[in-house]
Simulated scan of single mutants.
Amino acid sequence: MNHETAVRTAGPRTGRPVLVDASGPRLPAVDRARIRPRYRAILAVDIEGSTARTDPVKAELRRTLYRLLEEAFNRAGIGERYREEYVDRGDGALVLVQPFDEVPKTLLLHPAVPILSALLAEYNAAQSIASGGDRRIRIRVVVHAGEVHNDGHGNFGEALDIACRLLDSPQAKSALRRTRAPLVLIVSEDIYHSIVRHGYEGIRADSYVPLVRLEVPGRSHQGWLYDATAPYRHPTLTTWTRRLRAVRGARPAPAP
């Protein structure tokens, strides 16, 4: 019946079926345009141990987190006009950055995240564990990018699924517990291969190590952890070391 189904009779007298379109009403043009994919850089953050805090402390931490995020973005040159409104995650936030030439994704890794780390360290140093609860903030940060949809009720899509799964992974939580730093940074495989490994200004590719591998529909996805304690390896020195080893391996063994 071409998506039509008899669902009820017109009344006791006629007994004729009333046919309705079971496929549902067509979306208005404005709604169809609304759910088209839009490319966005994605930064997601989550506060460590938020569920263990009292509600008044949570409220204070949330206000502080949003204030520090806003300050870090503005200092990094990612003004409000380049960003969509923050998406609240209860104990964290999701930030979508629009693709402008003035705000390449490199700005998220440097200087935005380092500035945020410094602001958190400064804030935490001024806090003390009082009877009212611990006000210090430590967070996990994920940077990813991809297509994002919005149907008028909220944002969704595979790119956001990947970012949130990296953010909430046990490996990311464990990485934060192992460090005394105020935050840990995890980047997606896409960010690592398109940005990190090229070593743009302020970004040390040799400081990123594999952290977690996610299985998403149709592909395996690697997450990388920024390790600030990783020893710096000068690229020229590394190249000459490989060459020297190759030369040594090619030399014939000495005669007995």
Rank of each mutant, 00 (worst) to 15 (best):
E158N: 12
A253D: 06
N2E: 15
L94T: 01
A121P: 03
R75P: 04
R213L: 03
L176N: 05
L120W: 12
D206L: 07
H144V: 08
A145R: 01
R213C: 07
R138E: 04
P235R: 10
V142K: 03
L119N: 06
S23N: 12
L27M: 15
D101V: 13
E48Y: 02
T179A: 11
A118Y: 02
G11E: 00
Y66G: 11
L27D: 07
D161G: 15
C164T: 11
V187K: 05
S23I: 12
R178F: 01
V196L: 00
D101N: 09
R8Y: 00
R138M: 10
T9D: 13
T239H: 14
A118S: 08
T241V: 01
V30F: 10
L19E: 06
A52H: 11
R251H: 08
P56H: 05
W240I: 06
I195H: 00
Y82D: 02
F73E: 12
L108N: 03
M1Q: 14
R36I: 02
G92L: 05
R34L: 15
R165C: 08
V187F: 05
R67F: 02
L120T: 05
D161Y: 13
G79R: 13
L160V: 14
E4T: 13
L176S: 02
A112P: 05
A145Q: 03
L19I: 07
D101P: 10
H149S: 13
V196G: 00
T239G: 08
